[in-house]
Amino acid sequence: MDIMHLAGNYAEAVSMILFGIGFTNLLLQKNLIRKIIGLNFMDTSIYLFLALKGYIYGRKAPVVVDGVKSMEAYINPIPSGLVLTGIVVSVSVTAVMLSLTIRLYRKYHTLNMDEITTIINRGEE
């Protein structure tokens, strides 16, 4: 029964697995670029989840064309709006992360977070 549920909602399950992959990468990778990739995985998986939740089978994107104004013709527009907002947030966060990475690389010539910490703790400012 539970397996059937899971199989019926396989797309949601995939998005959760992707979230797990992204989360673990952001947490455990030592390389900063890989961390950022993990961050993007994590955010994108949530957008996939949201998009799935807003989708109604057989309906179209909520953009009025050809004068069709019936509510039955379109999918739920709110999750799409949330995804757009989320993308804006994640782009800005990624930009800040990348700029920090560039600064750290210029100063310490490595992308490995642990090495950077070791260098700093040795007192080589």
């Binding site: 952001l26 947490l27 900063l32 961390k35 966060v93 800040v96 992360m97 920090l100 990475t101 600064r103 750290l104 100063k107 310490y108 977070m113 950077i116 910490t117 260098i119 700093i120 400012e125």
Partner: peptide, 12 residues
Amino acid sequence: GRTMEAATRYLI
């Protein structure tokens, strides 16, 4: 150096 590292850890 220290604040940049701290900011990165904070952000992550």
